Computed example of a mutant assay.
Amino acid sequence: MAYNEQEAAILRAAIGPRDWLRETRMFGGLCFLDRGNMMVVLRDTGGAFFRVGPEAEARALALPGGEVMVMRGKAMRGFVTFGPELLTNEAQLATLIGMAAAFTAGLPAK
């Protein structure tokens, strides 16, 4: 299954133009990279997960619909996932993108 192009357009618009932003297919979805670091991934099953970092994880999980990101049965610390309904909530989406961008800005470029 491929990611939804309409959802990708919503994420692109919410992230906005940034010269460091790159996109690549990953995990069956579309990954948005900050200087080579995973920031947001649009899932092929709908919704997205965000790399907010361990310090912001509890704050992100407190948002409606937030869940711990689990991959192959293991909780991924610092990553949170949200269903497709998130993409219709501009304020919450902007908050999560801001959290993810703040975290990845502190990482070295790859």
Rank of each mutant, 00 (worst) to 15 (best):
M1H: 11
M1S: 10
M1R: 08
E5V: 12
Q6H: 10
E7K: 07
A8G: 12
A9D: 12
A9I: 03
I10N: 14
I10K: 14
L11P: 09
L11C: 11
L11V: 07
R12Y: 12
R12Q: 14
R12S: 14
A13D: 12
A13R: 15
A13C: 08
A14D: 04
A14K: 05
I15A: 02
G16P: 06
G16I: 02
G16N: 02
G16T: 10
P17Y: 10
P17R: 15
R18M: 10
D19C: 02
L21P: 09
R22M: 04
T24K: 15
T24P: 07
T24L: 06
R25H: 01
G28N: 11
G29N: 01
L30A: 11
C31N: 13
C31A: 15
F32W: 05
L33C: 07
D34N: 12
R35Y: 00
R35A: 14
G36Q: 14
G36D: 08
N37H: 13
N37G: 07
M39Q: 15
M39V: 13
V41D: 01
V41E: 02
L42H: 04
L42F: 05
R43Y: 01
R43W: 03
R43F: 01
D44Y: 03
T45S: 13
T45Q: 11
T45V: 08
G46D: 01
G46F: 00
G46C: 03
G46V: 03
F49A: 00
F50H: 04
R51D: 06
R51W: 05
R51F: 08
V52Y: 01
V52H: 00
P54Q: 09
P54G: 11
A56I: 03
A56G: 04
A56C: 01
A56Q: 11
A58T: 09
R59N: 02
R59W: 06
A60M: 09
A60R: 03
L61W: 07
A62G: 11
A62D: 09
A62K: 04
L63H: 06
P64H: 13
P64R: 02
G65A: 09
G66Y: 03
E67V: 01
M69L: 15
M69D: 05
V70H: 13
M71W: 09
R72C: 01
G73N: 12
K74P: 00
K74S: 03
M76L: 13
M76N: 09
R77S: 09
R77E: 11
R77C: 02
R77G: 08
G78E: 05
F79G: 01
F79V: 10
F79R: 00
V80I: 04
F82M: 10
P84C: 02
E85G: 06
E85C: 05
E85K: 12
L86F: 11
L86S: 08
L86N: 10
T88W: 00
T88Q: 06
N89I: 01
E90F: 01
A91H: 13
A91F: 07
A91V: 12
A91G: 05
L93T: 09
L93D: 03
A94W: 10
L96K: 11
L96I: 07
I97C: 02
G98T: 08
G98D: 10
M99T: 03
M99Y: 05
A100Q: 04
A100I: 04
A101H: 01
A101F: 02
F103D: 05
T104H: 04
A105L: 03
A105K: 09
G106Y: 06
G106S: 11
L107P: 06
P108N: 10
